[in-house]
């Protein structure tokens, strides 16, 4: 377990490409996964990821450690870029993949091509142990980027309930990951 690499992030903000490459190494897998969960296409995910890291490089100075985690900042950029892509013209010409929520459907998709397509074998054993409500909550709050107010409205539960359930779900996830 380690904290975020503040020094590297600072060096990147000062324009060090070497620092950028190490920030990439550290965060690219997670951001790729988030993007993929939204766009559901390998090649598109790769394109969006490239876009996201260009934004991280070009706008690195707008990250402020006093506002929150670097991961959270990068997560926001990734979700927005992925959602922007879905709304874009390029995507509308190719709508066939939109019908299903990727993360929510992992358990039932386990036997079809999704499993082969992604590295989801490891994640399968975690996700399968989560309650369906947890999968729904994590999908909304983490992958879809709902605020807890909007998430509560979407799930039709009080905000306080969403907060505590979300915490329980993340705890469950941490347990099954054997943290």
């Amino acid at each position: 377990m380690s904290n975020q690499p503040d020094l590297l992030i600072l060096k990147m903000q000062e324009g060090s490409e070497m620092a950028f490459s190490r920030v990439y190494e550290r965060y690219n897998e997670a951001l790729r996964g988030i993007i993929f969960a939204v766009v559901k296409d390998d090649a598109v995910a790769e394109e969006v990821l490239q876009d996201v890291f260009m934004k991280i490089w070009n706008n690195s100075s707008s990250y402020d450690v006093k506002q929150g985690r670097f991961f959270t900042w990068a997560l926001n950029i990734s979700r927005n870029a992925a959602i922007d892509h879905l709304r874009s013209k390029a995507h509308k010409n190719n709508l066939k993949n939109l019908s299903r929520d990727y993360f929510v459907n992992i358990p039932e998709d386990a036997t079809d091509e999704m499993e082969v397509q992604t590295d989801s074998l490891g994640i399968m054993k975690w996700v399968n142990k989560l309650k369906p409500t947890c999968i729904k909550i994590i999908d909304l709050i983490f992958f879809k980027g709902f605020t807890f107010k909007d998430g509560a409205a979407e799930l039709n539960i009080p905000e306080g309930t969403l907060k505590t359930r979300h915490r329980k779900c993340v705890n469950e996830l941490r347990n099954v990951m054997g943290e």
Partner: peptide, 10 residues
Amino acid sequence: YQRLAAGLAP
């Protein structure tokens, strides 16, 4: 969360 997301990466 990072591990979960990374697990989804193709």
